[in-house]
Design a protein around this nucleic acid. Structure first.
Length: 896
RNA sequence: GCGAGGGUAGCCAAGCUAGGAAACGGCGGCGGACUCAAGAUCCGCUCCUGUAGAGGUCCAAGGGUUCAAAUCCCUUCCCUCGCACCA
């Protein structure tokens, strides 16, 4: 125990309790799921990178999935809730260097450490399905899948200018390059070490994800279970532009294709521009020193160093197919080699960049689009010499096409100028080569005669050799490993020394859980087709593009090569959990010194306190700040519910066998709580569900204080609270369950049935309003010691009037025409008039139901004012009093 | 610049998709019960006014639709995030 003298005695010792139940779950195999289960609920958290350090983000992420998995399990679902280790990657190499060990030993040690912590947190995983991507049993299937992709024509070896991190000494995918802004502009840096990146030309293995660009984009529309921002980020990343390509004849170099989304502006093209990397620009450079220098300079320049006006005239001219004019050809850095065709015609009048460039280089600006009649801008106000007009409009100065709309012109011009419709994507192919050791060896062999040859299946896996400490790529230094024979011709050959991007590992791991020990295929196709897609996927927003896009790509390819039967998307519902901020509301970080160690929290307060605090703090998507008060509050709640249950179990509570109105009230609240908590769990709003549980426990305490409770009702309340709490605080849940003398484990118990009581909301409103009115009167009048509070329900005829009034358009005549109400004459008419003046008439209970509701709730009023409360029907009540009552608003009399 | 999501009482934060009660809950603050006292627990209050349940003003700002708007529509301002020399 770590209790200090200042703190109250703890009701139980969390470390003893928690480890005891963890063993019990383990022995009862409660988290194991049979291979023959049919379409289980697949609940998955993004598996952790094996840094060895569990942080609050992990705790939150895994508590969310664990609580939801436990909830579904109690509801009777078969649940697949596995865990594994994203265990390849550069940090392990760095750690190995620092600690004079090797990546494997380091990683394995991290895994053991993290697994222990997960167990301590009470996370219920099917550990028999545990996987680690750094094991040959796993990564051999990366290699096998790579070959399958290759056979499907989805692997290419391309020379490409690549992002190179000089510090990590490796190539980075576009996705791994981040922009860092400084005072003097932006710099591209390595996502891992923040070192500014270089560019290098190298041969690399690519997966042609661009072949799937269209489906990856279109299918986003149907991913309703994904957050909008993630879908939008992927749309952005894939970046589709609908346009057209048209050829311009460039001097002696022949036709050069351009891509444009604004073919309607072609008559306004007054110059032509090539990217520095465009083949024709390179050709021109051979005879033109000025162009050559410019291209060289542009290649050296940092991102953003050259502005839009940077460029050089080549001395060449292109022919505008629309006007027949010869327009000057420039090489300009703002034209990007890998966007479109790397060449464009420029229309200064209708494009901001072209406009700026033209001004700087003194090129003609020719207007060809005017605002349409219905545009917000008057054509007179448009001065393209001053500023580009970039909206669509009506063509002018475009020969016979004047008067066409932009939309029509774009269509017409495609055939007119022998172009073609074309769709371009920003998405680039996925370069997976990494010049590092701790990853999956790419299963290729280079033979002088045969070129690149895949390692035959029977020779897989290509296992990593022993790690050697070296400055370069350790695989390159492993001479013995490198030397092999060509599978085709048998002559000496060398192995590929690059390893795969670790995002390959995580692109299909969710399939491996289905059959983790299978040794003749990556996963069981039938079972995977039944168990997938993942029903609930939870992880950080940082994976919005990379991991989630690659995983979608892999799933589609795997389905296309018939390893899956009709699974096009891996994750149906996605939740990105928010950050856990430091106490001051800032990001937790070492430099700020505001980090909180999960381990210390577990030691001090126990896993359940940590879990409860995190889940109560906010909805999963929202960030929240760490709060010692919140932790304390969660802890004392657990202690309190424990004490209450213990008192019940120990026979410290006196019960009264007679059924009472109070018991009826409590019974209804129990049902309402179960209903509400169930809905909130389903909606992933754990904080709301937990709030309901707290309210129920508080009610049970008040119940006990107010009277000798009914035993069955009180017990049912405790059982319900324990069950509703169990997914979030499972150890305490078991302990409560045990005290309540129930059979088996709460983790396997049935979820409480969840129908809200009849008229619950209306009744609650009636009771709350009445209590407030009583308070209001006592307060306003200044009554010190009320003797008796009398509540009288309105007579049945008034209820009838209200019912009629709710339906009728014209209240007073409708009421007066009613035969039954005529006997109440004047009174009925007056009441009808009152109601007619109201904008809205609330729902109300029938008189006998209203009476019963008030009788059930009267103990709350009696308790609050320490007084007698009498609830009367209209017949029993004094006439004057009863006449003041309305449906939903009993008359109140307070005597001193 | 483009896109996504937001702005609710001292603070945090529900409600907004399906318009109908000054607007759930928590923290903080105030008062009361219990207690020798503190803590824990319990009962209230916490926009303004009010000696019988009332009235007034409210959900970034302004306008509109409606019997009725925090909720729907328009405009403006501000915040957070993502993308961005993308032709």
């Amino acid at each position: 125990m770590t209790t200090t003298g200042e703190e109250p005695e703890r009701a139980f010792d969390h470390s003893e309790v928690e480890s005891r139940w963890q063993s019990a779950w383990d022995e009862a195999d409660v988290f194991r799921i049979d291979d023959d289960a049919t379409d289980p609920e697949y609940v998955l958290a993004m598996f952790p990178y094996t840094s060895g350090q569990l942080h609050m983000g992990h705790v939150r992420n895994y508590t969310i999935t664990d609580a939801f998995a436990r909830f579904e399990r109690m509801r009777g679902e078969a649940v697949l809730h596995p865990m594994g280790w994203d265990s390849f990657g550069l940090p392990a190499e760095n750690a190995a260097e620092e600690r004079d060990t090797n990546p494997r030993d380091w990683t394995m040690q991290c895994i053991d450490q993290m697994r222990d912590q997960f167990v301590e947190m009470g996370f219920g995983y099917d550990w028999e399905r545990e996987i680690a991507t750094c094991e040959p049993e796993y990564y051999q299937w990366n290699q096998w899948l790579f070959k399958q992709f290759r056979e499907a024509g989805l692997v290419e070896r391309q020379a490409a200018e690549l992002n190179w991190c000089p510090s990590c000494e490796t190539v980075l995918a576009d996705e791994q390059v981040e922009e860092e802004t400084h005072d003097d502009g932006a710099v591209d840096v390595c996502w891992r070490c923040d070192t500014p990146i270089d560019h290098r030309e190298m041969d690399q293995w690519f997966l042609t994800i661009t072949d799937y660009a269209e489906e990856l984009l279109d299918a986003l529309d149907d991913l309703d279970g994904w957050p909008n921002n993630v879908r939008e980020m992927q749309r952005n990343w894939i970046g589709r532009q609908e346009g057209a390509s048209v050829a311009f004849e460039v001097g002696e170099y022949g036709d050069v294709d351009i891509f444009t989304t604004r073919l309607d502006t072609i008559y306004g093209a007054t110059y032509f521009s090539l990217a520095p990397g465009h083949p024709v620009a390179q050709q021109i450079a051979e005879d033109n020193d000025e162009v050559a220098e410019y291209i060289e300079m542009a290649a050296q320049a940092d991102e953003d160093e050259l502005d839009v006006t940077s460029g050089v005239f080549t001395g060449e001219y292109a022919t505008n197919p629309a006007t027949g004019d010869a327009i000057p050809v420039y090489v300009a850095d703002y034209v990007l080699t890998d966007v479109g065709t790397g060449a464009l015609y420029a229309v200064p009048a209708h494009d901001d960049r072209d406009h700026e460039f033209a001004e700087h280089h003194d090129i003609d600006i020719q207007q060809v689009i005017e605002p349409a009649d219905d545009a917000a801008v008057d054509p007179e106000d448009v001065d393209v010499q001053a500023e580009a007009y970039t909206e669509d409009g009506i063509l002018v100065n475009s020969g016979e096409f004047d008067g066409l709309t932009s939309v029509a012109a774009r269509e017409t011009f495609v055939s007119e100028f022998h172009g073609e419709h074309r769709t371009e994507y920003n998405l680039r192919d996925w370069g997976i080569s990494r010049q590092r050791y701790w990853g999956t060896p790419i299963p290729m062999i280079h033979c002088e005669d045969c070129g690149y040859v895949a390692v035959p299946d029977e020779d897989l896996p290509v296992e990593l050799p022993e790690f050697v400490h070296t400055t370069g790529n350790p695989l390159d230094a492993a001479e013995e490993w490198k030397q092999t024979r060509c599978p085709d011709c048998g002559t000496d050959a060398t192995r590929e020394t690059d390893t795969m991007d670790t995002f390959v590992d995580s692109s299909w791991y969710f399939l491996r859980y289905v059959s983790p020990d299978l040794d003749d295929a990556p996963f069981d196709t039938d079972r995977a087709s039944d168990w997938l897609p993942v029903d609930r996927y939870v992880g950080g927003i940082e994976h919005a593009v990379m991991h989630l896009l690659y995983a979608r790509f892999f799933t589609k390819v795997i389905d296309d090569i018939d390893l899956l039967a009709g699974v096009r998307e891996p994750f149906v519902n996605l939740t990105n959990q928010g950050m856990v901020l430091g106490e001051n509301g800032n990001k937790m970080s070492k430099s700020r010194g505001n980090g909180v160690s999960p381990q210390r929290l577990i030691d001090e307060y126990g896993a359940d306190t940590a879990r409860l605090f995190i889940m109560e703090a906010a909805q999963p998507e929202k960030e929240f700040a760490w709060s010692p008060e919140g932790v304390q509050s969660a802890h004392s709640f657990l202690q309190n519910i424990y004490r209450l249950t213990e008192a019940f179990a120990a026979g410290d509570i006196t019960f009264d066998a007679e059924s009472t109105d109070i018991a009826d009230y409590v019974d209804r609240e129990i049902d309402a709580t179960a209903a509400r908590a169930t809905e909130e769990y389903e909606q992933f709003r754990f904080n709301h569900a937990l709030q309901a549980v707290r309210e129920l426990v508080s009610l049970l305490r008040r119940y006990r204080e107010a009277t000798d409770p009914d035993r069955a009702t009180f017990e049912r309340g405790l059982v319900t609270a324990a069950k509703l709490l169990a997914p979030v605080a499972p150890h305490v849940g078991e302990e409560l369950w045990d005290h309540l003398g129930a059979d088996g484990l709460i983790v396997e118990a049935d979820w409480p049935s969840a129908d809200a009581p009849v008229d619950y909301e209306t009744e609650r409103r009636l009771v709350e309003n009445t209590r407030e009115d009583v308070r209001d009167i006592i307060d306003t009048v200044g009554i010190d010691a009320p003797q008796t509070i009398t509540l009288a329900v309105a007579p049945a005829w008034k209820h009838e009037v209200v019912s009629i009034a709710r339906e009728a358009d014209n209240v007073v005549p409708a009421v007066m025409q009613n035969q039954d109400l005529q006997q109440y004459g004047e009174a009925a008419a007056d009441f009808a008039k009152t109601l007619a003046g109201r904008a809205n008439i609330d729902e109300h209970l029938a008189p006998e139901r209203e009476l019963a509701a008030l009788e059930r709730a009267s103990w709350l009023v009696a308790r609050e004012f320490d007084t007698e409360v009498v609830v009367q029907s209209a017949d029993d009540a004094d006439d004057t009093l009863a006449s003041q009552a309305e449906p939903g608003r009993p008359a109140i009399d307070i005597s001193e």
